[in-house]
Each structure stands twice: as structure tokens, then as C-alpha cells.
């Protein structure tokens, strides 16, 4: 890691992930400075709220462009929840919608040159994953009480297998937030690093730099797809976890 950073290159591909404190804030000895990451979060929620509130301002019976986009997002997430959780999932719709849009717009804004991708930081993705994990676990216990533990006993498994299966189930349950956080973080990190590395080849290769340039162009398209896909995966996995907590298998 350190060798990469000081490896002689003027711009490390990882430099883009650096947190820069814009407004230093410290409360009771805790550093909660307003950074470039926080700025992107503020821009993200501003864009989402502008779309959802200003876009639907006219409440038109026949939607205009922005209202159609807002309705498209709404129905996309609504269908996602209906397909995975069913009608009981309506209660969790605002949360899933906020989560999906926050990650989607965060990822997309990260594709803008010289911007910052807050979802490429493990601290942020892990915090989100832990919120989902804790919320779903509380939901499971609130719904089923002590019976929630039966979730760790796979149905149809003979009793002598239980000592083996129950620890596996518990470990797989506890690894959910880790996989959820790592998936988003690693995808964003790898994609952006790759883009930066190949972009670095363009000036280095001179006239042949057209090749890495073309590759960067194609890769940008792929990254846009991944930006959407990861937001979708995060949202759909959260739905599936909620479904598990509600229905226990």
C-alpha cells in the first residue's frame, strides 16, 4: 500500500479516494469535520430531494419529464419490494427507496471527473450495512420473539446435523453485513482505481494512448452499469433480509 502511494508516480490511482477536510469540526474531542465525502452526500440528497419534490411539484395527471422520472424511480423500487417481500413490505418502502436512491446517485456522482465517491469508503458502506443488519435483526425479534432463533435451524435437516448446521447458519447470518459492505465498497474501489490506472496510460503511451483511451471509454460505460447494479443489489438484498426476518425462511 505505502509503496504504491510513494511509488514515484505523481498521481497515485488511490489518491482520488483521499478524504479532504473542508470545514474542520470537532465536538467533545470527536473529529466530525465536513469533508469532500460529506459534501458529496449533501449534493446527493439535494439532487434526490429536488427530483422527488420539485419534479412532482405540479402533481400533473400527465407527467412531465421530471415527474415521469420521479414516478419511474418510485415504481421501480415499489415493484422491487412487492416482488421480494410482498405487501407487508410497504412499511419499509421509504427506507429501501432512500437507500437505493442514496447509493445510486452517490455512485453516479462518483463517475463525474474530479468528484468523490463516498460509497468507495468501507466506513460508509459498513455503516449502512450495519444499519440494515441491526434493523433487520430487531425486526425479526420484534415480529417473532424468541422464535426468531429457529431461523438458524434449516428446515428438513436431521437433528444430528444440527450441531454442524446451526453454527454455519449463524456465521452466514453474521457475515451478511460484511458481504453487503464489502461488495459495494470493493466494486466502487476497483472500478475507479482501474479507470484511473488506464487513464494514466493515455499520456504515458503517446500516440498509442488511443488504445487505453478507448478502453477507458468502454470501462466508463461498464462502471455506469455497475453503479446502478450495486445500488440495486444493495436494495434487493436488504429486501430479502427483511423478507427473511418477516417470514423466517
Amino acid at each position: 500500500m505505502a509503496t504504491e502511494k510513494h511509488g514515484g508516480e505523481q498521481h497515485s490511482p488511490l489518491e482520488q479516494f483521499e478524504i479532504k477536510e473542508l470545514v474542520p469540526i470537532e465536538i467533545a474531542g470527536n473529529n466530525i469535520s465536513f469533508s469532500n465525502s460529506a459534501l458529496m452526500m449533501v449534493i446527493t440528497i439535494t439532487l434526490i430531494l429536488m427530483l422527488m419534490i420539485l419534479g412532482t411539484r405540479k402533481r400533473a395527471m400527465i407527467p412531465g419529464r421530471w415527474q415521469a422520472l420521479a414516478e419511474l424511480c418510485y415504481e421501480f423500487v415499489a415493484n422491487l419490494i412487492r416482488d421480494t417481500v410482498g405487501n407487508e413490505g410497504r412499511k419499509y418502502f421509504p427506507f429501501i427507496f432512500a437507500l437505493f436512491m442514496f447509493i445510486l446517485i452517490g455512485n453516479m456522482l462518483g463517475m463525474v471527473p474530479y468528484s468523490f465517491t463516498f460509497t468507495s469508503h468501507i466506513a460508509v458502506t459498513f455503516a449502512m450495512a450495519m444499519v440494515v443488519f441491526t434493523g433487520v435483526t430487531i425486526l425479526g425479534f420484534a415480529k417473532h420473539g424468541i422464535r426468531f432463533f429457529t431461523f438458524f435451524v434449516p428446515p428438513g435437516v436431521p437433528i444430528w446435523m444440527w450441531p454442524l448446521m446451526i453454527p454455519i447458519e449463524i456465521i452466514s447470518y453474521l457475515s451478511r453485513p460484511v458481504s453487503l459492505a464489502m461488495r459495494l465498497f470493493a466494486n466502487m474501489l476497483a472500478g475507479h482505481t482501474l479507470l484511473k490506472v488506464f487513464a494514466g496510460f493515455v499520456p504515458a503511451l503517446g500516440a498509442a494512448g488511443i488504445l487505453p483511451l478507448a478502453f477507458v471509454g468502454a470501462l466508463t460505460g461498464l462502471e455506469l452499469l455497475i453503479a446502478f447494479l450495486q445500488a440495486y443489489v444493495f436494495a434487493i438484498l436488504t429486501c430479502l433480509y427483511i423478507d427473511d426476518a418477516l417470514h423466517l425462511h
Binding site: M41, L49, T56, R59, Y74, F95, F102, F118
Partner: peptide, 30 residues
């Protein structure tokens, strides 16, 4: 800590405004 703090502040704000204002409006329109 700063990242997580601002995540909770911004996401919390987003969630509350969507939950209380924006989504009910879209739902009414639909």
C-alpha cells in the same frame, strides 16, 4: 467518525423528507 456522522445526518434527512413529504405525494399522484 466524520464520514459516519455525515452519512447519518444526510441519510436521516433524506429518509425523513422522503417518508413524510415526497413519497406520499408521488403515491397520491399515482
Amino acid at each position: 467518525l466524520g464520514q459516519i456522522f455525515w452519512l447519518f445526518v444526510t441519510f436521516g434527512l433524506l429518509y425523513i423528507v422522503l417518508w413524510k413529504a415526497a413519497l406520499p405525494r408521488v403515491s397520491t399522484i399515482l
